[in-house]
Nucleic acid binder design. Sequence first.
DNA 1: GCCTGTGAAGACGTTCACAGCA
DNA 2: TGCTGTGAACGTCTTCACAGGC
Lengths: 209, 209
Amino acid sequence: MKYLKIPAATISRLSIYSRALEELAQGQETVVSSKRLAEICGVNPAQIRKDLAYFGQFGVRGVGYFVKELLFDIKKILGLNKQWKLAIVGCGNLGCAVVAHESFVQQGYNFVCAFDVDPMKVGLKLATGITIHHVDRLVDVCRLEGVEIGVICTPPNSAQEVADRFREVPVRGILNFAPVQLQVCDTCRVEHVDFTVKLDNLAYHLTAN
Amino acid sequence: MKYLKIPAATISRLSIYSRALEELAQGQETVVSSKRLAEICGVNPAQIRKDLAYFGQFGVRGVGYFVKELLFDIKKILGLNKQWKLAIVGCGNLGCAVVAHESFVQQGYNFVCAFDVDPMKVGLKLATGITIHHVDRLVDVCRLEGVEIGVICTPPNSAQEVADRFREVPVRGILNFAPVQLQVCDTCRVEHVDFTVKLDNLAYHLTAN
DNA sequence: GCCTGTGAAGACGTTCACAGCA
DNA sequence: TGCTGTGAACGTCTTCACAGGC
């Protein structure tokens, strides 16, 4: 596996395919062609075959792909065949929404601890039962719990500080919801969920013509 | 303007540049070079110059760009020199977080109405003062308010239905937070904010080596 | 000397078209 | 016949390198 450089877009699409396959599996479908899957996901059939080809041969010529098998294989490629331990920082509406996000638990993403700066929130429990710690205890608690991925849902001006603490843990991956570019070291990967950029894209395209 | 096909990535970067310039302007900086701006945004300097070149000439050779002027120009390009009217559907944690998102108001994005299916929520007011309507009234209220962009924060299984209603309004842009591929007509543009895909990307890269 | 603006080169990703196989 | 797997063609985006101008 992974002999070649895999396009970033391929990984994102695998995630989409996995979601579509999950639907198909629930609908009792056993086989799917690249054409069919492509329609569901809104991509080119050749794209799907190429994406999969980076990782091996999963289909049967003249037939298609077995839904459950392919789903299993894609999840394995993505690293979803294990439980991930996550920490959330910032327990406002957004933080709560993220922790509660149903598809996360289902995919093996477990929030094992939560942090906030607000003394009023410290000690309270989130809906999932985890207790909110003060952000000053981030490094200790994350080490203790074996956190692998940090999620930042703080206001923009404290996001970098949080990232620095995550670095100290160390945490190897950060999902950042704050609208700022984070500075991190090479051993830490950041994925940025940026509402504003997406909205600006809409504004541009609705303005353009 | 817009003589050529503009790469989608260029538009997203303009949004990033605008954010960085906003920071610089607040820091009382009057001039910035493509090199400096590139460092802040984590891109190649030539990239910035190329991106801007699609829309005209904004800099001064030997000097750089005037921060405020460039900020103004980029905002105009993105269509942020007007107020946008948005509607939110789904007033759970995520919906509330989105409506309250500070940078939105600041950028001219105004939520003028809100909807939910839950009868317990209908009639309540959000923090910003807007009243929650039942989603059955979506088409009427959106027309009345002149909504231009719809934001979907519902669970995945009702997202398509909401998109269909938005189509009836009609709304020309949708920001979708639900983890499903929406089917819409050509005249409506969808931007998808997909947490799960981003997390899966992290999982993949933390697993890979 | 310094920094923008830009054609040309290069890297990258997607789509095509068909060989290979059930 | 039908659909996958894949080299080759194509198109797009990014980076380089330098001319142009302050």
